[in-house]
Design a protein around this nucleic acid. Sequence first.
DNA 1: TTCGCTACTCACCGCATAGTGACAGGCTGG
DNA 2: CCAGCCTGTCACTATGCGGTGAGTAGCGAA
Lengths: 219, 219
Amino acid sequence: MLNESAVLEALPQAASEAEKRVRDRGATEKAILRAAKALLSEEGFQNFGINAVARRAGCDKQLIYRYYGGLNGLVEAIGSDLGTWVRDRIPEDTGGMFLLTYGDLMERLALLFLEALRDDPLMRRIVAWEVSENTEQVRRLAESRSKALSQWLERMKGSLAPPKGVDAAAVNAILIAAIQHLVLSASAGGQCAGLALKTAKDWEKAATALKRIVRGVYG
Amino acid sequence: MLNESAVLEALPQAASEAEKRVRDRGATEKAILRAAKALLSEEGFQNFGINAVARRAGCDKQLIYRYYGGLNGLVEAIGSDLGTWVRDRIPEDTGGMFLLTYGDLMERLALLFLEALRDDPLMRRIVAWEVSENTEQVRRLAESRSKALSQWLERMKGSLAPPKGVDAAAVNAILIAAIQHLVLSASAGGQCAGLALKTAKDWEKAATALKRIVRGVYG
DNA sequence: TTCGCTACTCACCGCATAGTGACAGGCTGG
DNA sequence: CCAGCCTGTCACTATGCGGTGAGTAGCGAA
């Protein structure tokens, strides 16, 4: 008995979230959500499971079942936060530029999106998840993200209209696809299709090429 | 005892590869490799493991350790085949077209690559794997693929040169990224960034937009 | 036939996972 | 005070995984 308690006391805080949380359901729920996000950001969806989240949150997995109804509910909760992502991560102003044409706008948006994605590991993991699995979980996640993104695009567009004769929806989807894959690929292996993407200089090159592409279609 | 044998006989072939393989190491090796590829194509890398491959191949997992030195070796064997992928899946001729400019060429190559990727589930899974994990396994796989792809590009390029002042390497990397993500996204959820990618008509739209983008940069 | 090599199978280990049921401790209202 | 609810913990099952050591079955040569 003495041994047991001694061992327990000697153990380091079991998990980063542990702290001495008192009986506070709200706080615990938040801790779980934060742990889930952090875990997903850092480890990816491979090792994302009830046990891992519980460990990270420093609580029993039973609580995840109770409060979120299992992993699905937890993922859904993560998805709910996605709507605010764009608002939080992407500046709404024009950076002091005058965006006179649709081309101006899309160039700026493309670069903003690129930056935001590069800076947000959680978002990257979710995008990677989206193209790797096709479960209900992921589908819902993808939808949240897609909706938030398109709302942002719509909001920023204002009254600017794309050039006639260009299928802007399709072109923009391709641009977004390019950006997402570029960032994912860089994040995973430091390069994409032979193009190094590590240093700031590498990224400048990529950004320049991206601008050129946008200008090519939209003028 | 009687029960046992009866049950065994009543069971369907445990795995699709089973057949009545006689003691033939070469054949078994091939069966394992085929099983691995099929499994990866159909299930993705999530459930790709020693046990699953062995089940699918209808043999004991021990043989995978013996013949390939474990999963790593097996994946490497899959990677070795990747060099021939481009040769096998992408037509080398110009489809009766005259490719006079770099723009002509890249438009054609982009569409060829898009088609080839859409038609090859294994390749899609590997690309998805590449952006989702960063293990030695995947890195080697990615390198094989990248090398094969760049060799193909080089070979097809011939003497055509990109327009001055354009960083073709960067632009092409972005184009490839776009194509890959487009196909992956479609394969996973039937759409990409809000653009539906299910019917042939959907894909025509995407192809048209892609052509427009290529023409925009390369003329 | 018997020996020996090789292809192959089986049974097991340790360790993870998801999920569940029972229980303990604190707070609150009666 | 005590009863009951709520928060949190623990122990346990069932299942899967990767990995290994030992044993079996067929085939060819002496």
